[in-house]
Design a protein around this nucleic acid. Structure first.
Lengths: 183, 183
DNA sequence: GAAAATTGTTTATTATAGTATACATCTGTC
DNA sequence: GACAGATGTATACTATAATAAACAATTTTC
């Protein structure tokens, strides 16, 4: 069962409860069948966009409110279970810690750069901002004609919508955390 | 063909064009089949929420960006084509000018109150704000223990999440515009 | 207490979402 | 000019979304 189907089901059931409505009440307000609403609430259906649109319209709620995970819940991510998504000759390893989520709008990576490695990156599309933090070691960053040297504990924010590259100028592995935010 | 399917198709085609990607490129980035992407772009498919989620994730865009109508287009609404949605004994007529849209979050009504009519409204759920404008005539508004008298050209904003009522104290029909915004 | 109504669940059915594959056309390479 | 590759479209097929209706349990009404 997809997490998103569960989220939609949870949010729909929650708002129905808050308003003390029956499945029949919601069916009338939204023009979606009672059986389908029941399945959606149980997270047992992958509804079409127009069905969710009908529900949001009939209930007078925003579309995205139905896509939110349950409020106040923890979401724990463990770098040990993260996946390698890129590995240039094994010397520049990128791990996805928090994957991109269309509602959140950013993604979170851990990067390991072996000594002397230079990573070149092409410009992303418009509106991408990178936030780079050195966890250990050092990194040299060049983007858009600007240069910066970062040590442990330092963070750099810059536009990823231009060519940029990272370099590990030390003789030990550099560990980085990278947030890519898309606007 | 639903307007929303057209919007999704338009936005997807636009962003694919901006990034100079083929259908095959997008299929690989999103794990949605080329045939389905083609149908979605043509607005010939009513995709499921998880398909759109895959597209938004793979393309690194927000979910709602795919739901937007084409940018910069006019959307004209004519009160002549609006529908009567409520008519208490024919003396209090409510016309939907702009229906609720889950992305916009509000709806727009025209109200006609005959002389002497009192309209009572129960409290809406939490987070509903009413914006009432007198187009012609006058109206007396009571909500949450507060009272206000409005003449032509005056506008009142108040919380619709409490019992409220309108009264036409004159001997002519009052015309009102009402925006209901849901947060 | 009986009957009606309400509520959520289940089932049979239809419509369509979504895919793999084939196809037609166009573009690039030699 | 021939061929390979890329591109978007069309098709056959499977999986499932969505509905109408039936059902079982509970609640409400008299």
């Amino acid at each position: 069962m997809e997490q998103m189907s569960r989220n939609i089901g949870y949010q729909l059931k929650k708002i129905r409860g808050q308003r003390s409505l029956s499945l029949d009440d919601v069916a009338k307000a939204t023009n979606v069948s009672k059986a389908q609403l029941a399945q959606i609430e149980k997270g047992e259906s992958n509804p079409t966009v127009s069905t969710i649109w009908k529900i949001a319209s009939g209930m007078r709620i925003s579309f995205s409110s139905l896509l939110q995970p349950p409020c106040g819940q923890f979401q724990k991510f463990d770098e040990k279970t993260s996946t390698v998504v890129s590995e240039e000759d094994g010397k520049y390893r990128v791990y996805s810690i928090i994957p991109y989520d269309p509602e959140r709008g950013w993604e979170f990576y851990k990067i390991e750069m072996d000594p002397g490695v230079i990573h070149r990156s092409e410009a992303h599309s418009e509106g991408v901002e990178e936030t780079l933090t050195v966890i250990s070691g050092q990194v040299f960053v060049e983007a858009g004609g600007m240069n910066e040297h970062l040590s442990q504990g330092e963070t750099l924010v810059f536009s990823g919508s231009q060519e940029h590259h990272y370099e590990n100028p030390t003789n030990e592995t550099t560990i980085l955390h990278l947030i890519l935010q898309y606007r």
